[in-house]
Design a binder for these strands. Structure first.
Lengths: 220, 220
DNA sequence: GAATTTATTTTGACTACTCAAAATAGCGGG
DNA sequence: CCCGCTATTTTGAGTAGTCAAAATAAATTC
């Protein structure tokens, strides 16, 4: 059975691979895990020895098929637990990431299956993040973001790819929840500002970085 | 924050104290934790240094007030989680101890409070074991057992103080669940056998040891 | 009251993970 | 082509928890 530490290395590697696609730099992993770079080098070498990752020295790491399978299992637990915490226990969506961070390593597959059934086999968690299937399929579509979608066109928010409680609380305050409608009225690259219009709301200014964390699809 | 290991030492110490009352011998703790005796000595000394237990060398250990408070918190998590697994996720009562063993160390107080409310603030878990209150009160009554209750008198089962899946499955198979009625028709100390009569059931033979794990109260 | 058994403690060593700080590699600029 | 910067790796050391096996203390037996 993989340790909590190993599960975390693999999970973050999977998450970072989505953005980086290809090799994940050691520094990115080090930052994500809040661990000094030297520690990552050591651990990655041991993960490589176990066949869970491939290590290209001085270049980066990536998951092997076995490592990816394990990582998907952890991610499935994380996102199903988040969904449970919000839908059944009525917790706030900004609080559940931290809770799931712990529970994902303690919950068995048997309990997870029951939870999955209780929730009606959801395909996304409360942030819109896709939940890997029992078989390890992660059907993550490529979406536009508020930083890249066409101007003036109505869009529907589908996913918030940022877990910090502050950001999520800010987002909710301004009605930026998965499922909500919006329209980007202006985008100023020089200033790094995006202006978003919500139905029945004041125009809202967002940094380009923040806008890039909000995934959208064309409305209707 | 106490480690998983520390939480387990304290929890088992609390459980063993119920039976042993007074000092728990090192050997008992060693057996309960499935760890060699030398390890227990080492750990107990470090727990004592942290003010969580009192160590009487060559005699045994007991919890301090601080240690007991922590242990009660863990036990509360364990038993509420068990209750949740049975009542909400419909798992079998013989399986939930092992699951709760893991989850008790990963669940936060915030989640626990929601769970407690969802379950209607239960006072016992599915085995009839009392759940410590949020404030750390453990109202565990002294009950008779099938090994000690008066002969021929009708009794109601209140608690099964044995967590092994095999035993619990055996108990359920013969209708020995908390809440059930029964009557001890015969007790043979020499043979170490207790005969139990269930309404509409065949007489059932139980070892004295097994009978001692089933707590009862006078019926009506 | 010595001798033996049993419980406990000590000692030395190991695994998994971590950090701090020094060494090194590979890059981009001049 | 060399210089310096940044990312990475190495080295040495520490913490938490564990085991195996030898040493010791206490209790039991004769």
């Amino acid at each position: 059975m993989p340790s909590v530490t190993v599960e975390n290395y693999l999970k973050h590697l999977l998450l970072l691979a989505e953005e980086t696609d290809g090799l994940v730099p050691m520094g990115a992993l080090s930052a994500a895990l809040a661990v000094v770079p030297g520690t990552v080098t050591t651990m990655v070498k041991s993960l490589a020895a176990d066949g869970l990752v491939v290590h290209r020295p001085r270049q980066g790491v990536k998951l092997t098929a076995a490592g990816r399978r394990l990582a998907l299992g952890v991610l499935r637990k994380h996102r199903l637990v988040e969904t449970f915490l919000v839908q059944v226990l009525k917790m706030h969506w900004s609080a559940v990431n931290a809770e799931a961070e712990q529970l994902e390593h303690a919950i068995s597959d048997a309990v997870l299956d029951r939870l999955d059934a209780l929730l009606g086999h959801p395909s996304t968690d409360p942030h819109g993040d896709p939940i890997p299937s029992r078989l390890g399929k992660l059907h993550s579509q490529v979406y536009a973001t508020l930083a890249t979608c066409p101007l003036a066109r109505p869009v529907r928010l589908v996913r918030i790819t940022e877990q910090s409680a502050e950001f999520l609380q800010f987002a909710e305050l301004h009605g930026l929840l998965p499922g909500a409608s919006a329209r980007v009225t202006d985008r100023n690259l020089a200033a790094g500002l995006v202006t978003v219009q919500r139905p029945r709301g004041r125009p809202l200014a967002l940094s380009l970085a923040a806008a890039g964390r909000i995934l959208v699809e064309p409305s209707r």
